[in-house]
Structure formats: structure tokens, C-alpha cells
Design a protein around this nucleic acid. Structure first.
Length: 452
RNA sequence: GUGGAUGUAGCUCAGCUGGUUAGAGCACUGGAUUGUGGAUCCAGGUGUCGGGGGUUCGAAUCCCCUCAUCCACCCCA
């Protein structure tokens, strides 16, 4: 009989415990930060009617859509982001949700594009959005959530780049380039990557702009100085454009709001060259880059869209939100050595080598779990050295050793696997002294207990 | 989707323009050590040389196809 080769599809991956545990921890961190701002969880189906998904982004996103005909003859597709399903969701449930509506959504999305480092065909996004308000407070909070999120994950060097589509659109209107806005912005977005000269070329070729027009667009992106200085220069450049002025004013409020909340200027920066590819953004836009690893791309991006659900409902639903690229972020953390190699969620291994006392082992493990500890009982009475080696390699923090002698004395050895030190502790009453000794070891290497 | 590179042990990698019976360092298993891990020593699995087909007396090596990974374009998280 011939065996089937075990394999996974291109861009799709398995997650072994040592990669799944940091992944789950990251998800928990993101959810905790979202909840701290009052965002509530939702979920939607992976599969949607094709008409719900199609034609919402660019032609490119349509090409990347996984689509097929289901058993009932329906044209369906796998969601390629969480924003389009949100639009459908909000349009369908607006009356029972109430506005403004703040939700987070952590789920898998699929894109049939070519793979690269940090780019997969199946990956997870952690979105949060505020729907139903045009207040700049929502824009400010979006930036603050991204900021808190990056800090909570463990980064201290990162940059949240902020821009506003109205500023760009305002300039393009003044230059008579409004019709070619998409092509112009797409070229501008590549500034950091391909340089000014190439961007000028592309704007002329792809967007039929004159060289003078293209240079004026680039001039905007080249403004230097503090945010305040740049905004001041913007006012003169955009003079006469209502859209441009509104965009500049919004940027001013976002930046000062973020500063008022205590975020240092080094972390939130005005960057007039970021444009975002997705067409539905209409106001503030965000991109987040890691200081030590900018080449992996933006790990958290988003922006304001003033008519999210226009294709699904006549109700006007503005919104703003952002998406954390969980898998891209994990790829970066892996590369930066920020992922701890631990293969067990438990911290205590109860070694086992006196089978006559099995009931006592089981009772001790149960008592410790009741005290809130994660305890694994080794299933075989193998040599103690081997069990300790297992504990060491899996990343256990504490090993418990009890054999005939200890059971007779009603004690148990509590071994700190990091220092190698062992202490003999009384089992009675209810294994409480043992639990306390373990807690003491565990708390010794937690600098700040996390709040839940 | 287009173009380029790569694929040898669990991992990181040698292997000359076809030629005896395939390698190194860590990781893995057992023993020296029937109750105290990371070390040392010995013994050893370390292998469809990505997969399939072709050329050849003979293919890890050459050719074709295929799959996967990485890079660039495109796009984006």
C-alpha cells in the first residue's frame, strides 16, 4: 500500500505547539487591548456570497479572491479581509447594534497571491473598528489602540505613520489630477522604496501627469520638520482647497490628541507619502513599521472610510479602524528572537516513579490544579533523570519529586528547574505548602503581573 | 499571475565538468548512572539526496515536468 505524502498547500501552514503558544498569547494581548477601549467581539462566516465580496477593493483583490460554486450551485468566496464582512454585518444588523458601534474581530482570511516572507495565503487579522461616527475622537483612539497594542506586545521601537487622504486629494484637485488619483497615490506610496525619480516617471507614465504636476505632488511628500511645521506649510500649499484644509485640520487634531494622551512624538509621525492601496479610505490613514525590521512591511494598517456599507444599505455609516497583521508580526518577532521557545503551557511537572503510590500522585496534581496551577503528571515511571530532561526541554519551570521516602514522610520535593535548587515541603494540609512554594518560584520571574 | 534563485539528516550546510558502499556540527535514542536535568564518553536510526519521468552501463550531479520555500515586480497584513 502506498502512503500519501503529508503536505500542506502553498501559503498554508501548520502550527506546532511552540509556534501556536506565542500565537495564542499575541491574540490574547490584542483582545485585551481592544477590550480596554470598549470594543466588543464579533464573528462572521468564512464563506460569503461572492457578490458580497466582489468589487469592493481593487481589481487586484478580486483576482486574489478564493471563489468556487458550492454544492447548492451558489457562487461563494472566502473572505480576503475582515472589513468587507463588517460592512455586510453592520448593514444587516444596524438596527440592533446601535451607533456608534465598536467591534473587534480576530479571524483567518485568505488571499490567493504569491507567497513571500511574512506573506501567506491563509493568515490571521485582528481588526478593530468604530462605526457610525465622524468624530475625530475615533481617529485619535484608533492611533492610541495601535500604540498600546504594540507596547503590550513588547515593542518599544516602532513608528505609526499618519496621513490623511483629504490632504492628498485636495492637492490633486488643485492640480487637476483628481481623476487619476488612484494611479498617482499608488506611485506616491512607493516613494520610500524606489526613490523620487522613479516615482516621477511612474506618475507621468501611469497617470498621464505632467512632470511639473508630479513634482508638485512629490514636493508635498518631501516636506520636512516637526509635525507642526509641516502642517503650517501644508496650509499654504493647500490654500483654496476645502478638502485639503479639512484634511490638514484633522491631522492637526489627531496629532495633538495623541500627544495629549501621553504618546511620544517619536512613535506617531506625520508621513505625507503613505497612501494605502485600498480605494475605500477617505480620511485619516495609518501604517505601522517596526524600528528594527522595516522591510517586513506594515504590521498594523487602517484608516477612515466614510461610506463603509454604501453598497449594502442606504444608511450612512462612516467608520474608522485598523488591522493587526498577526502572522506578519509573528514572522517579524521570530526573526528578532522575541519568541520564547516553550513547548508546554504548564509550568509544573510532577515526576512519577513509584507506581504503588499512583493515587497519591493523582491527588497531589488535583490539589495543585485546584490552587490555580498548571500541572502535568508524567505518564511513565521512567528514570528520574529522563523525566527531568523532558521537563527542561519542554520549558517547565518547576519539577516535583516524590517517591517512597517522601510519601512516607508526607512531603514532596519542589525543584526550581532554573536554579537547580530543591526544597522538601510538607504536603499537608491539602498540598497548600507545596502550592505556595511553587507560587513563590513562579512569581520570582514575573516583574509585573498582567491585568486581565 | 510574471521573472530569478534555492531544495542533501529534525536543523544549519559540504559534495568538483556523471563513477566505488554518501558526509560535518548541534538535535534524537539507548547505555556508563533502578531516585535528581543542561556536561563528558561510547554505541548507534541520523537519509525515498523535494516528488515524478527521461538520457545513460551507471544520476544527488545532465534534461523535462511538478511541488514547496526565498527574492523582485504587482499588491498588501
Amino acid at each position: 500500500m502506498s502512503l500519501i505524502t503529508p503536505r500542506t498547500l502553498k501559503g498554508f501552514r501548520d502550527y506546532v505547539p511552540s509556534s501556536m503558544m506565542p500565537r495564542e498569547r499575541l491574540i490574547e494581548t490584542a483582545k485585551r487591548v481592544y477590550r480596554s477601549y470598549g470594543f466588543s467581539p464579533i464573528d462572521t462566516p468564512a464563506l460569503e456570497y461572492l457578490e458580497v465580496l466582489q468589487g469592493k477593493g481593487s481589481d487586484e483583490t478580486d483576482r486574489q479572491l478564493y471563489q468556487f460554486v458550492d454544492h447548492g450551485g451558489r457562487a461563494v468566496g472566502l473572505r480576503f479581509d475582515l472589513t468587507v464582512p463588517l460592512a455586510r454585518f453592520v448593514a444587516q444588523h444596524a438596527s440592533e447594534l446601535g451607533m456608534p458601534f465598536k467591534r473587534y474581530h480576530v479571524a483567518t482570511v485568505w488571499r490567493g497571491e504569491n507567497t513571500q516572507r511574512g506573506r501567506y495565503r491563509e493568515f490571521m487579522q485582528c481588526d478593530f473598528d468604530t462605526i457610525g461616527t465622524q468624530s475625530v475622537v475615533a481617529d485619535i483612539e484608533t492611533a492610541l489602540v495601535i500604540h498600546d497594542l504594540m507596547l503590550a506586545i513588547g515593542f518599544d521601537q516602532f513608528t505609526i505613520c499618519v496621513n490623511n487622504r483629504l490632504v492628498l486629494n485636495g492637492l490633486l484637485e488643485k492640480l487637476g489630477l483628481a481623476a487619476q488619483a488612484t494611479a498617482i497615490l499608488r506611485a506616491l506610496d512607493k516613494l520610500a522604496k524606489i526613490g523620487a525619480e522613479n516615482v516621477l516617471e511612474e506618475m507621468q507614465q501611469q497617470a498621464q501627469a505632467t512632470r511639473a504636476q508630479a513634482q508638485q505632488v512629490l514636493q508635498l511628500a518631501a516636506l520636512r520638520g516637526t509635525a507642526d511645521e509641516v502642517l503650517q506649510q501644508l496650509d499654504t500649499i493647500l490654500a483654496g482647497s476645502a478638502n485639503g484644509a479639512a484634511g490638514a485640520e484633522s491631522l492637526r487634531q489627531v496629532l495633538s490628541g495623541v500627544r495629549a494622551a501621553g504618546v511620544p512624538d517619536t512613535r506617531v509621525k506625520l508621513d505625507l507619502s503613505i497612501a494605502r492601496g485600498l480605494d475605500y479610505y477617505t480620511g485619516t490613514i495609518f501604517e505601522t513599521y517596526l524600528g528594527p525590521l522595516p522591510t517586513i512591511g506594515s504590521v498594523c494598517s487602517g484608516g477612515r472610510y466614510d461610506n463603509l456599507a454604501g453598497l449594502f444599505t442606504k444608511q450612512h455609516l462612516p467608520g474608522i479602524g485598523a488591522s493587526l497583521g498577526l502572522d506578519r508580526l509573528l514572522a517579524a518577532m521570530e526573526e528578532l528572537g522575541m519568541v520564547e521557545k516553550v513547548a508546554t503551557p504548564a509550568s509544573v511537572l510532577l515526576t512519577y516513579f513509584a507506581p504503588d503510590h499512583l493515587p497519591a500522585y493523582l491527588q497531589l496534581a488535583a490539589q495543585l490544579r485546584a490552587a490555580g496551577l498548571r500541572v502535568e503528571l508524567y505518564p511513565e515511571a521512567k528514570r528520574l533523570g529522563q523525566q527531568l530532561k523532558y521537563a527542561d526541554q519542554r520549558g517547565f519551570r518547576v519539577a516535583l519529586v516524590a517517591g517512597d521516602d517522601e510519601w512516607a514522610r508526607r512531603t514532596c520535593q519542589v525543584k526550581d528547574l532554573r536554579t537547580g535548587e530543591s526544597q522538601e515541603v510538607n504536603l499537608d494540609p491539602d498540598a497548600e505548602p507545596v502550592a505556595q512554594a511553587i507560587h513563590a518560584i513562579l512569581s520570582s520571574d514575573l516583574p509585573a503581573p498582567e491585568e486581565h
